[in-house]
Design a protein around this nucleic acid. Structure first.
Lengths: 184, 184
DNA sequence: ATCGAATGAGACATGACTGTCTCACATCAG
DNA sequence: CTGATGTGAGACAGTCATGTCTCATTCGAT
């Protein structure tokens, strides 16, 4: 089983989300193993980050599947998406923070595939009249992930309760800050 | 004149926004000076980052002043704030990216003061009935800066046109993604 | 109890970034 | 022309994270 490896990867996410440049010592300590064992599991920092990103993207992709965002009412699909993806908010925060430190074509490609699926969802919603058409679908997708990462950081640092995070994300993203919004 | 120093700092923002761990060589090259001169201007990396953050926060704070966010209709104040702060979107992206790499109590305190002003704006708007009360004012403030940083990254990497950035930020933040939003 | 595999602790060398220094060159005022 | 100032280029050592290795210990299976 890869459970052992995955648990280490999840511990690494918790550290790298806050400190993208954390030393391998800290990551090993957070995972409860020694640096030697960490290096046996993942030969080198690049390999570790690569696999952490891979796991993160697999979880994200699985969340998109679980929310079956390609089907049904686009607005409800976004709500399902938020529900499915909130548990991985910390993971999303790691991805956005780390993407500026490491270049990995494979990870970038996987991210682009995922982003394309979400963008397609918003495009579908725009064509159905549910979403505003003045805002590019690509920007809606990017903003969604920006807010998701923001939720991840806020929860990680205790500024936002985990149980409120879904509500905070989906309500702000869908409805905005205005009490009664009448888009111009 | 501090123009010389400030131009170097702005060049540093452009690099550090993408690569928070960029070597001093790259920063010096981006600023068009040698590493020796960079070190004469700012003795050490910490001093450089400290001053970059200081400049960034001064610009932000000046934007809050210019938008006189403490006065007038809260919604219009947010629009003015977005207008005033969009030119420094890259700067905001740097701040959110770097804050997880360096600890600087002075910078953190200045950030907290600025965040408190924006939070007060949203609180005022909630009390006047303009903003939704189900979302904590602190979260509205954090989300605003998350989206601002997202705009900064998107513009920096060419995914969003600079002339559309104000519209993208303020419309999504205020009105959300829904075409006709009816907050529950 | 014994053997074997896995782990932890630590030492060691390597490479990258950094701080510091010296020196040569360009520019400019006198 | 001369001297002063500022700058760029490069050398040098120190520091830190990393990659690699060895060795003692622990845990589990037989």
């Amino acid at each position: 089983m890869a459970t052992d490896r995955d648990s280490v990867l999840m511990a690494a996410v918790g550290v790298l989300c806050r400190q993208p440049t954390a030393a391998l010592d800290e990551i090993a300590r957070a995972a409860g193993i020694s640096r030697a064992t960490l290096h046996r599991l993942f030969p080198g920092r690049d390999a570790l980050v690569h696999e952490v990103a891979g796991l993160a993207l697999r979880r994200m992709s699985a969340a998109l599947d679980a929310a079956y965002i390609e089907q049904g009412d686009p607005v409800e699909a976004v709500r399902r998406l938020a529900d499915a993806v909130i548990p991985d908010a910390t993971t999303a925060a790691f991805l956005t923070g780390e993407s500026r430190l490491f270049e990995d074509s494979e990870v970038t490609a996987a991210w682009d595939r995922m982003d394309a699926r979400v963008t397609a969802l918003f495009l579908r919603g725009q064509q159905s009249g549910a979403f505003r058409v003045e805002l590019p679908a690509a920007w809606l997708s990017e903003a969604f992930f920006d807010l998701l990462a923001g939720v991840g950081w806020a929860v990680q640092e205790g500024r936002l309760a985990a149980r409120d995070s879904t509500h905070a994300l989906v309500e702000l993203f869908l409805g905005g800050a205005l009490r009664t919004s009448s888009p111009s």
